[in-house]
Computed example of a mutant assay.
Amino acid sequence: MRILIDENVPVQMLEMLRRLLPEHEVRHVSEIKWAGKKDLALLPDAARRGFQAFLTKDGRQLEIPSESAAIKKSGMHHIRFSHGHKGMAGLGLAMGAVIAAMPLIVRELEETDEQRLVHIKGLNPATKHRFDLVDPAKSPPSYWPR
C-alpha cells in the first residue's frame, strides 16, 4: 500500500511508520515537494500517483463539502487523528496512538476493495478499540457527500 502523510503530521512519524510497515511505501508531502499544496489539488494528484491512503491531522477536512467531495473522488482511504492535549504531551499521545493503530489499520484496509474513512482514537487504556472504520457506501456519515 502507498500511504501519503499530510504536512500537518509530524515528519518524525515517518521513520517510525516506515519501520512498522516495511512492505508498504510511506511518504511525507514534504519529501515529494508538495508542502503547502492545498488539499483540493493534493488529493487528486496523490490518487493519480497511486497513493491509496492519506494520513492527516486535519479532521476539519470532512466538515468542508468541497474537501469531503475531493476525498471521496480520490478513492483513497482517509485516515485522520486528533488529540485533545496541547504541547509535547499532546503530540506524544497523538503519535503513540497513530503508531499503535497504523499496522492494524493497514491490515484492515488491505482486506477491502472499497474506500474507508478511519478515525484514530487517542490513547486511552480503558478503550478497547483505537479507531473507527466507516464504509461510506453502506453507512455514510452526515458530512459525506451524497
Rank of each mutant, 00 (worst) to 15 (best):
Met1Asn: 07
Met1Arg: 05
Arg2His: 10
Arg2Ala: 02
Ile3Cys: 01
Ile3Trp: 00
Leu4Arg: 02
Ile5Ala: 03
Ile5Asn: 08
Ile5Pro: 08
Asp6Tyr: 01
Asp6Phe: 03
Asp6Ala: 03
Glu7Ser: 08
Val11His: 03
Leu20Asp: 12
Leu20Arg: 11
Leu20Ala: 10
Leu21Ala: 07
Leu21Lys: 04
Leu21Met: 05
Glu23His: 10
Glu23Phe: 01
His24Pro: 10
Val26Gln: 06
Ser30Gly: 01
Ile32Ser: 03
Lys37Pro: 00
Lys38Ala: 10
Asp39Leu: 03
Leu40Asp: 09
Ala41Gly: 05
Pro44Gly: 06
Asp45Ala: 15
Arg48Tyr: 04
Arg49Phe: 08
Gln52Gly: 10
Phe54Ser: 05
Leu55Met: 04
Lys57Ala: 15
Asp58Gln: 09
Asp58Leu: 01
Arg60Tyr: 13
Arg60Lys: 15
Gln61His: 11
Glu63Cys: 05
Ile64Ala: 09
Ser66Trp: 02
Ser66Ile: 12
Glu67Ala: 04
Ser68His: 10
Ser68Tyr: 08
Ala69Leu: 13
Ile71Met: 14
Lys72Asn: 06
Lys73His: 11
Lys73Val: 12
Ser74His: 06
Ser74Gln: 08
Gly75Cys: 11
Met76Arg: 01
His77Asp: 12
His77Phe: 06
Ile79Glu: 08
Ile79Val: 15
Ile79Thr: 07
Arg80Ala: 09
Phe81Ser: 13
Phe81Tyr: 05
Phe81Pro: 00
Ser82Gly: 14
His83Ile: 11
Gly84Asp: 14
His85Pro: 00
His85Arg: 15
Lys86Arg: 12
Met88Tyr: 13
Gly90Phe: 09
Gly90Asn: 07
Leu91Cys: 05
Leu91Ser: 10
Gly92Ser: 12
Leu93Gly: 10
Met95Cys: 10
Gly96Thr: 13
Gly96Glu: 14
Gly96Pro: 14
Ala97Thr: 08
Ala97Glu: 12
Ala97Cys: 08
Ile99Val: 15
Ala100Trp: 01
Ala100Arg: 13
Ala101Trp: 03
Met102Asn: 03
Pro103Ser: 13
Pro103Ile: 13
Val106Met: 13
Arg107Val: 00
Arg107Lys: 15
Glu108Arg: 13
Leu109Val: 02
Glu110Trp: 00
Glu111Ile: 00
Thr112Ala: 10
Thr112Glu: 13
Glu114Thr: 11
Glu114Lys: 12
Gln115Leu: 12
Gln115Asp: 09
Arg116Ala: 11
Arg116Trp: 05
Leu117Tyr: 06
Val118Lys: 01
Val118Ala: 04
Val118Met: 04
Val118Trp: 02
His119Ser: 13
Ile120Phe: 07
Ile120Lys: 09
Ile120Thr: 07
Leu123Ala: 12
Asn124Ile: 00
Pro125Lys: 11
Lys128Asn: 04
Lys128Ala: 14
His129Asn: 12
Arg130Thr: 07
Leu133Phe: 08
Pro136Gln: 02
Pro141Ile: 04
Tyr143Ser: 14
Tyr143Asp: 13
Trp144Pro: 02
Pro145Arg: 05
Arg146His: 09
